[in-house]
Design a protein around this nucleic acid. Structure first.
Lengths: 232, 232
DNA sequence: CGCCTATGTGACAGTAATGTTACATTACGA
DNA sequence: TCGTAATGTAACATTACTGTCACATAGGCG
């Protein structure tokens, strides 16, 4: 379970390695490239939660990468943090104009950058950065790894936990089995779609304690969704 | 009550004196040395709350001091702020790699440094707060180095002691084995994650005396946490 | 109603994660 | 220097979880 996926576009190998180390230590998942074109491909393939973009990279410029990311529908809303060198005030302004969300001036401490990423994520997707998720009478605490319903603790296996987390991050939304396999199990998981059904059942069994109404709605020939009125 | 204990490793007498004056004025307690080896001894004797480390000192290098501080369990998590000269970008990166938390570039204003130290302490403080930790019916006294459960004394080995201390500093929170290795054993300790399990067992055995409920919760595929209701 | 498809359900075996023990090695005080 | 305690690791035991199946049930449509 990661705190989020980061795309790092940086052509200084030493700095890149340092940052990757720090972010992985903080439970982030990092993809790194030194090349702008490749960055665009990676971003299109699977949009990250944040892009860290060095302004001075080889090939196409950072500003161009920024602009194109903003134009691609899937990445239009992904936050971008510029990494600029001291004195590139000019670029900084143009970067923010082009659609970057924040910038950090080199040299910076990795801790500072981690903190900024955390801040940006909290702003854009509370669910991802947050330590606490809730919907209806369900609460999930990421720090203590505990789930409660109407105050009573619910024991969950790892997969059920991730599954519920995913639903809590997008309440009300319907997900196909394939989609859930991608998000909860991982992209290339090669697992039977029906397996989702079984885990949904296990989750239901665990979470619908007592006389609780079922909070997972089955959408025939479409998938499942978290819903206060699952019977509708 | 001082705002915190600072270990200043700086071999320029004039600068050292200036900084000591400023920090004492701000209610900090400062120990100062010009020598790296001595710094390590002082740090081991009684770990400070922050280390200010000049990169260019006589004897062993700043980077070596930094590394060794990180390797000693008692100082592994003490924040280190580097004092570097302008233009030592290379060293700065290596410093952050080695485990320094922040850096300040000479020449800097003492005020700025005081502010940074304040910021770093605020980040770490909650855990550092007292000489006495407690959770549920467990008490730990840092001064006498004693642990009690429901009033009866519990003998603990050094590692189990540090492990329990870490849990008491963050009660309820789940830590992965890797995280625990970093925090309790020290960074870059190069130890098998499974070793944590064995020490968890030793800690459990020592602490779950009589009919006491297990207070350490195993979170499958995530790690361990201190929890009054470990069975939940 | 009868057929077809989609989903619910319980069981099961394989696998991965953790518990537990024993042992070799190291660190340390007498 | 010796003896003791502490430590890290490997090996084995045990448990929990997982994915899949076979079959049951429900929904939709003529």
């Amino acid at each position: 379970m990661t705190r989020g996926r980061i795309l790092l576009v940086e052509d200084d190998p030493a700095l890149a390695e340092l940052l990757v180390w720090h972010f992985e230590r903080e439970e982030f998942e990092v993809e790194q490239t030194a090349d702008g074109e490749e960055a665009l491909l990676l971003a299109r393939e699977s949009p990250p939660d944040v892009v860290l973009l060095d302004w001075m990279i080889e090939g196409i410029s950072g500003i161009e990468v920024c602009r194109r990311l903003r134009r691609m529908p899937d990445t239009a809303n992904v936050p971008i943090i510029m990494l600029t060198a001291r004195g590139e005030e000019e670029d900084r302004v143009r970067g923010l104009e082009t659609g970057a969300d924040d910038y950090v001036t080199k040299p910076f401490s990795p801790r500072e950058l981690v903190a900024r990423v955390g801040a940006v994520l909290r702003r854009v997707r509370p669910a991802l950065a947050g330590e606490h998720l809730a919907y209806a009478d369900i609460e999930m605490d990421m720090v203590s790894h505990k789930v409660r319903r109407s105050g009573t603790a619910i024991p969950l296996g790892p997969t059920e936990f991730r599954l519920l987390k995913h639903f809590l991050e997008h309440p009300g939304r319907v997900f196909s089995r394939e989609r859930l396999l991608d998000s909860v199990w991982g992209r290339d998981s090669d697992i039977e779609p029906r397996t989702v059904d079984v885990h949904i059942r296990r989750l239901r069994k665990a979470i619908n304690i007592g006389a609780c109404a079922d909070i997972i709605r089955t959408v025939r020939s479409a998938g499942y969704a978290l819903d206060v009125d699952a019977t509708g």
